[in-house]
Amino acid sequence: MCLGIPGEVVELLDDGRDLAMVSVAGVRRAVNIGLLHEEKLAPGDWILIHVGFALSKIDEREAQAALDWLQGVGDAYTDELEALATSDIT
């Protein structure tokens, strides 16, 4: 029910009904962007879609920061594994 899916704005539909064409992995649907009035949306922006409405504009900087953190966790783990593999305690 609270299903929200990220989609990319492909085109702002200029028909006075607050619609934007959004693509989710190549699947396109017109989505109502009336709840994002404050945001300046443009093609290439990513939004979170819920029951045909854009609820939020995805903050790419925050997304990158989250991924960087996760990447760091993964790298540290890999390094440790490698260190373990090459260590010689005999």
């Binding site: 899916i5 989609g7 992995a25 190549g26 699947v27 649907r29």
Partner: peptide
């Protein structure tokens, strides 16, 4: 296919 995954995600 990616579009099938996309449609499936969208429709749950």
């Amino acid at each position: 296919q990616e579009v099938v995954t996309g449609a499936s995600e969208l429709l749950g």
